[in-house]
Design a binder for these strands. Structure first.
Lengths: 247, 247
DNA sequence: CGCTGCATTGAAATATCTCAATCAATGTGG
DNA sequence: CCACATTGATTGAGATATTTCAATGCAGCG
């Protein structure tokens, strides 16, 4: 079931079978994209939102100078542009990292879904709040950590997010980011990023990193260096839909 | 009317008189806080959300080392912790910068409001999405701009946000941030922040900055240096509640 | 074999931090 | 009114962090 990962990674709580079914039925179609493709440009008017079933996507802004700045990395189970439902446009570009499978939700279908269930609307709202929470944590990392610790933080977050959806085997991070991508995300030059990788390797925290393959040998070490705790990924606690009762 | 600024700064569109009234009636009380007070600690369980009527508030995380990192600055018209409605806790601390007046919305009252109007729920959802949008822009600034341009960006954003709610007179930024605060927000040391201020002054972009008073002499210059456009403050366009029709 | 894309290394140039001191305004007690 | 303490802004200078430019290494691929 397509919604499975959404529940795992984002909501961490069961929706009822009926609710899952409503979500599934709002999908108009499923599409596949190749790796490193542009999908949505900033500013473009949107009629659909997309849920990432498989693969990873990048949310980025291209600098006037041509420098690409990653603002977020999406993994399976994420709605990649649910904020486009309320905003109608994105403030950033959206493209694929790997080959991706996306489920399309027409905004009309979402409106219909929400009209029938305030609870589902809250669940979706909550899931967009997690983005903001991740953004804040990343601002914190950019503000307070040096480049090596930032890199450690990024790796630790990706590992944890993959682990939450059952995609981490305890060793290799199954996301083929290039060192350039890590650099673009951490806001450092590619060269310096490479030196940070070397340092992390020298400390025994990671192992290889060739051809987009990165092995994590000491996740606790990474987390500690970065002051990482995953709590911001869950909204502090789990979503408590029942506390948000209908009056 | 208390909601006036919410509409100006966040929604930029009229809600109906009835809707405004519903919002106003959900306020349980109004409270006042002194300057530089802690209001909500990270992790604390929340039963209310607060709307900032007057003053400015800071959202920050205190480093283990004791360094304070600002993640957001709230101005009148902002719900300072609306995400606490869905999350039930904050991932950061919340405190005042100046004396503040806050309107309290019990989460129960919000639930009642939303049960009666999906449109209002969307308006509130939208307003939290603007936070995420501002966060992304700030990530972009931290990643791609040097410290001087970051400072210019921060000033330009605050000016624009105050202007949106009619609180900018074309000269002085009416927010008494210390250089330490700017430094904490920009992720630079206080000393270096001071040098950035000197540079901006030397370029003729700002004038004085003493006792928390900062005069903007060339807002276009600031914007240009920072690559600032205010579009992310409005969600790319204005909220189009009518597009989000009930099915 | 000779590309091409990505990772790595070296070294000089900048940006930023840290520590320490000074300055300017403001407030407080006598 | 003066002496002194406090807070925030400013300056200097050496230490680190990071960037930039340029070159090299390394693997897959036609």
């Amino acid at each position: 079931m397509i919604t499975e990962l959404f529940l795992k990674g984002r909501l961490r709580q069961e929706l009822s079978a009926a609710e899952k079914s409503v979500i599934e039925q709002s999908i108009s179609r499923t599409i596949t994209l190749g790796p490193r493709e542009t999908f949505i440009d900033a500013g473009q008017r949107l009629e659909n939102s997309y849920y990432l079933v498989e693969g990873q996507m990048l949310r980025y802004v291209d600098d006037p100078r041509g420098v690409r700045q990653l603002v977020h990395i999406s993994v399976p189970g994420d709605f990649v542009d649910l904020h486009g439902y309320a905003m109608k446009r994105l403030d950033h570009d959206l493209g694929t990292l790997t080959e991706c499978t996306l489920a399309e939700f027409p905004h009309e279908a979402l409106s219909a879904m929400f009209a029938g269930s305030a609870r589902l609307m809250r669940a979706m709202w909550f899931s967009t709040l997690l983005d903001a929470s991740m953004h804040r944590e990343w601002i914190r990392a950019l503000n307070g950590l040096n480049s090596e610790a930032r890199l450690a933080h990024l790796i630790a977050e990706l590992v944890e997010r993959m682990r939450l959806i059952g995609r981490f085997d305890g060793r290799a991070l199954p996301i083929p980011l290039l060192q350039r991508d890590y650099a673009n995300a951490c806001g450092v030059s590619e060269v310096h990023c490479n030196r940070c990788f070397s340092n992390l390797r020298a400390r025994g925290l990671i192992t290889i990193s060739r051809g987009g393959r990165l092995e994590v040998s000491d996740i606790e070490g990474l987390q500690q260096m970065a002051g990482f705790t995953g709590s911001y990924l869950y909204g502090g606690s789990s979503l408590d839909l029942d506390v948000m009762q209908d009056a």
